[in-house]
Design a binder for these strands. Structure first.
Lengths: 213, 213, 213, 213
DNA sequence: AATGAATGAGTCTTCATTCAT
DNA sequence: CATGAATGAAGACTCATTCAT
């Protein structure tokens, strides 16, 4: 008799949960939380309605499940800390690339979750702390550190951090809306944003009437 | 038959419509579109449920009504064109101030409308064209013009415009989430953002301690 | 403009409530609370399902409504007090006749309510206080008074009261079960019970080998 | 095929059945048949849901099982017949004591079964014949016999039997409702009821203070 | 125009029962 | 025999919409 059949059981449970969450994410993203019926989620996941409730407390529990998954994707903190030594412009570009690369996996999850999050105090608070604030704080510390090492000019760190993060989030919204320009320029965006942020829009003395880089 | 009892009648009708839209905006913003019942809207507006249907086709018609109102607030184009002569940094600060000042009126409307918009193709398309794309295009033209007049360095205009707009929208989201830093720094934000955008984060040669790249 | 159209409105509401409660009573009595669907109640009442919920909070609210109606039928107290002067045997017969006459109206209500009451602490408590205990206490006082006036032998008043009441309730159960003997002897029951209770089953000295009264 | 592993097997089966019926009785009595889930019964019994269905056809089969158990407790007939010789008052007291002593085992079973029985024609019929009518008929014969031997006055035997039985059942209901008086007077009840029944409530000529009618 | 009672389609959720392991 | 995950039918309840007054 094996000492623990539990691991196998646990893996099956996890797989089933993921199967259901995948389906929920897809359908929520497509039609919105409220216009999606549990029956639809079930048939998309290839299980019965009842099975959903063997793995989640309620329809809203699926939202929380997706939220939790999103949180697990987030490992910004480590990156930030690990990258502290490098040049901030390179760091920004790298971070943006990574985030933008993640977007395919994240896109639907955010779309599935955000509309409800905006409007449900409990979820809003959770989402804010888990994503918005967590990232903002990390960035803030990073900017502060860069200022102290002289890599960045002495700007208002908290607000600047939010400006950078806001620009990124705004971009995500453009993508959610299917903006052609953003979709086409997706790969260039890190460089463009880094340029704007670090070099500024103001013409340099050495760029009189100049051409673009 | 009198020639025109219309004007008065029309004004009454408009007033009643606004009364209902105000109520809908408030309650949608607070609880979300789907969690709000027509009964709630009616009682908040101080009318009966039936009356709502004398002024709007359906519950969704209220969303469209709010969307239309939002559009009426938007007069960016004129500003942009009128301001073309000035210094772009001043323009950015002015525009941000104006927008941020508008925010109190806009906040609830956006919150009422956005979650549904994100998830309803018809509304999404409408919202995208009416707000996102319209503003983006104006900004794009403006940036392009500035580049041509030498007020701005030769950057990728469409992407840059979206970066600026995205930073603004992201800020709005921070506010929707009740972020303390953004709320406290609300008044400073135009200057901070303008500084980042125009002067860049990179230390200038003439700044003490700073070393250029 | 009439000062109060309210009374009419109130009467309509009351009528509709009764219409629904009548239907619920009938169907609950026939199939039991849980086997009865709201759809069935609605169609029996000749209204739509939704209408039920305009008048009652929930399916369980219907039970409470029936319970309340039962309570309104109950005017034992006054009878008891008014009858205190008379002979207790006559009183018992009169009371039983009245109660048994009421039974047609009460039968279904009890059948509708009792099974749930027995098994739902909240309802049980309410039912016990409102019917069982209230009647028991009245009877108890009555028996006590009769003892003091010498109309009844000095027995244990509380227990005796419960014996009388229990005999009546037991009879009701027989009827609920459709017992032929009880149904056939329904009209005779008051006399029989009064005889047993007052004269006792033990043969009297003066009734040697005698015939019934 | 072995000739008899049966006895042992049969005992195990019986034990498991009882284990399940005990659990069902407890939970049905506490929350009612319909509010009890098979999962609850299973966990109370310490088995899995599936196991229940190895021993019973359906959830309703559990009710029938409890009903059958109740029937097995009932051995009134023999008592009645065996006791025919004695004094009827002594018999009543003895029988009541025995029944009241049984009550602890019976209480939950009745509570588990009665609400459904009242409302389910099939069960109602079965219960009526097996308990109500069977006991009533025995009592009726007994009373009739007592009348013929002169131990009891010539009353209406069937109705009187039901009066006695009804008083007992009513008492049981008081207990189900948790009536304090009945609970406290439980031990005295046989004597009290016997006194009422046999001696009557009417004051005797030989009782001080009492004046006869 | 205003009202609000009536409607009934639609949905989440529960739970008895089955069956592969 | 025991298990417990999967099933899906069924039902209470909600709420946008209508319409007679």
């Amino acid at each position: 008799m094996p000492a623990d059949p539990d691991p196998i059981r646990a893996q099956l449970i996890e797989a089933r949960r993921n199967q259901i969450l995948d389906a929920a994410t897809t359908v929520f993203a497509e039609k919105g939380f409220h216009r999606t019926t549990t029956k639809e989620i079930a048939s998309t996941a290839g299980v019965s309605e009842g099975t959903i409730y063997n793995y989640f407390d309620s329809k809203e529990g699926l939202l929380v499940g997706i939220l939790t998954r999103l949180a697990e994707l987030d490992t910004l903190d480590e990156e930030l800390m690990g990258a502290l030594q490098g040049d901030p412009r390179d760091f920004l570009v790298t971070m943006l690339r990574r985030r933008l690369g993640l977007i395919d996996r994240v896109h639907d999850m955010v779309l599935a979750v955000l509309p409800e999050v905006l409007v449900t105090p409990k979820l809003r608070e959770r989402f804010y702390r888990q994503f918005v604030l967590r990232t903002a704080t990390s960035l803030e510390h990073y900017v502060q550190a860069c200022i102290e090492t002289g890599h960045i000019r002495p700007v208002n760190a908290p607000l600047t951090a939010r400006a950078v993060q806001g620009a990124f989030v705004g971009l995500l919204l453009f993508r959610l809306f299917g903006d052609e320009v953003v979709l086409a320029g997706w790969g260039d965006y890190p460089e463009v944003l880094a340029t704007v942020m670090f070099d500024g829009l103001r013409p340099r003395a050495d760029e009189a009437g100049g051409e673009s880089r």
